[in-house]
């Protein structure tokens, strides 16, 4: 299953890249589309292409051709622990 096959506002997780898709991969990887990343399809453009997705707290648009190399699975699990941490000694000045 790839990014283009899913319905808007369904949470899913990137599982990898389709083989032989080196062309767009460098940019997608730099943008943070790595394995285990949660993505959400926000919408398709009025003419059906490109797509708008949300990941890592920002929104990205990409064409169907580019989205079609991103393999996904539905769900929320991304193998990462939950955010949050214990007490921190905060302050304006750092060493």
């Amino acid at each position: 299953m790839t990014l283009i096959d899913k319905n808007p506002h369904e949470q899913c997780v990137i599982t990898g890249f389709a083989p032989g898709s080196k062309k767009y991969r460098a940019r997608l990887l730099a943008m943070g589309l790595t394995r285990g990343t949660r993505v959400k399809l926000i919408r398709r453009a009025p003419m059906g292409d490109p797509l708008e997705i949300e990941l890592r707290g920002f929104r990205l648009t990409l064409r169907r051709d580019e989205a079609s190399i991103v393999l996904i699975q539905i769900g929320r699990h991304d193998g990462r622990g939950p955010h949050g941490f214990g007490k921190k000694n905060r302050g304006k000045h750092c060493e």
């Binding site: 990898g16 943070g32 790595t34 990343t37 941490f85």
Partner: peptide
């Protein structure tokens, strides 16, 4: 390149988990 990006973002996730509270 996929492995390296995984590790880069892995490192970043580590930093963010420690330093960012939502």
């Amino acid at each position: 390149d996929v492995i390296l990006a995984d590790y880069r973002y892995g490192f970043i996730n580590g930093i963010c988990q420690k330093t960012v509270r939502i």
